[in-house]
Deep mutational scan, measured.
Amino acid sequence: DEIHIHFNGVTIEFRGLTEEAKKALEEAIKRGASEEELKELARRLIK
């Protein structure tokens, strides 16, 4: 299970995320999180 985020022309790929983690990332994107914020969020979620 993986998710691809297209962000300002950059694709960020995450693997092994739970549904909750995906929802958290989607919410962050909707509120306009920066690419760095998304990566940091993903790091926290994957652990």
Rank of each mutant, 00 (worst) to 15 (best):
T11E: 08
R15S: 14
K30Y: 10
R15Y: 10
I12S: 04
D1R: 05
F7C: 04
N8W: 07
A28I: 03
G9Q: 04
K30E: 13
E13S: 14
I12W: 07
E19S: 12
I29P: 00
R31H: 09
L17T: 01
K47N: 15
E26P: 00
L17M: 10
A21D: 13
I46L: 13
E26C: 14
L38N: 00
F7M: 12
S34K: 04
A21L: 05
E26R: 07
N8H: 11
V10G: 10
R43W: 14
E19C: 05
A28W: 05
E36I: 08
E20T: 11
R31Y: 13
A33N: 01
A42G: 02
E27T: 08
V10F: 07
S34Q: 04
E2G: 10
E36D: 09
I3A: 07
H6T: 12
E13Q: 11
T11R: 08
T18S: 13
K30S: 11
G32A: 01
H6A: 09
E40V: 05
K30M: 10
D1E: 09
E27L: 09
I5F: 12
K22L: 12
E20H: 06
I29A: 12
A24N: 03
E19D: 10
E27W: 09
L25M: 07
H4S: 10
V10C: 05
L41D: 00
R44L: 14
E40D: 07
H6M: 11
T11H: 11
E27S: 09
E40W: 03
E37L: 02
N8M: 08
K22F: 10
L25F: 11
E13Y: 12
E40R: 04
I12G: 05
T11A: 07
T18K: 06
H4R: 13
L17S: 02
N8C: 05
E2A: 14
E40P: 00
G9P: 03
H4K: 12
A33W: 08
F14T: 06
E35T: 11
E27V: 06
E26T: 11
G32E: 02
A24V: 15
G16N: 10
L41Q: 00
K30A: 12
V10N: 10
N8T: 05
A28R: 01
I5V: 10
A28S: 03
E27G: 07
E35V: 14
I46H: 07
A24S: 08
G9H: 04
E13T: 14
S34R: 04
K30G: 09
T11N: 06
I12F: 06
V10L: 09
I5A: 06
N8R: 03
L25C: 01
H4V: 12
I5S: 03
R43M: 14
D1A: 12
G9F: 03
A21P: 00
K39H: 09
E40A: 08
F7H: 06
A24K: 09
I29M: 13
L41E: 01
K39Q: 12
K22H: 06
H4C: 04
E26L: 13
L25S: 00
H6G: 07
A24Y: 12
E20R: 09
A24M: 14
L45M: 05
F7K: 03
A21Y: 05
L17K: 01
E20G: 11
K47E: 15
K47D: 15
E2W: 14
F7E: 04
I3T: 06
H6V: 12
L45F: 11
R31W: 09
A42E: 02
K23C: 04
V10A: 08
I3C: 05
V10S: 08
E13D: 07
L17I: 09
A28C: 05
I5R: 01
G32D: 02
L38H: 00
A33T: 06
A42D: 00
L17P: 01
S34G: 07
L38V: 13
E40H: 02
E35W: 15
K23V: 11
D1H: 14
E19K: 09
E19I: 11
E2H: 14
E20N: 08
V10K: 07
G16M: 04
R43S: 09
L25G: 00
L25N: 00
T18Y: 04
E35N: 06
I5T: 04
F7N: 04
R44Y: 12
L38E: 00
I12Y: 08
A33Y: 10
R44E: 15
T11L: 13
A42H: 12
L17G: 06
L41C: 01
K47H: 15
R43P: 00
E37T: 03
E20Y: 12
G16R: 03
E13N: 05
A33P: 01
E40M: 02
L17W: 06
H4F: 10
I29N: 02
D1N: 13
A42L: 15
L17V: 07
S34L: 04
E19P: 13
N8D: 12
F14P: 00
L45E: 01
H6L: 08
T18R: 08
L38C: 03
L41R: 00
G9N: 07
I5G: 04
I46W: 05
T18E: 06
E40Q: 04
R44K: 13
R43T: 13
I46Q: 07
R44Q: 15
E35Y: 14
E13I: 15
F14R: 00
L38Y: 01
R15E: 13
L38K: 00
I12E: 05
D1F: 15
R43L: 14
E40G: 01
G16L: 06
A33F: 06
G9Y: 03
L38G: 00
R15T: 13
F7Y: 10
E35Q: 08
G9T: 03
T11K: 07
E2C: 08
N8P: 05
R15M: 08
F14S: 02
D1C: 13
F14E: 01
I29V: 10
I3N: 06
E37W: 08
G32M: 02
L45Q: 01
A33S: 07
I29S: 06
F14Q: 01
E37R: 01
D1P: 13
T11Y: 10
K39V: 15
I46C: 14
N8S: 06
F7S: 05
E37D: 06
A21S: 09
E36K: 08
A28M: 04
K47G: 15
I5N: 02
I3E: 05
T11C: 14
R43Q: 12
R15D: 10
V10H: 10
G16P: 04
R44S: 12
K39M: 15
R15N: 12
A42F: 15
H4W: 09
E26N: 09
T18A: 08
D1T: 13
L17Q: 03
A42P: 00
E13H: 14
R43N: 12
I12M: 06
R15Q: 14
L38T: 00
E13A: 11
E19F: 10
K23R: 11
H6C: 06
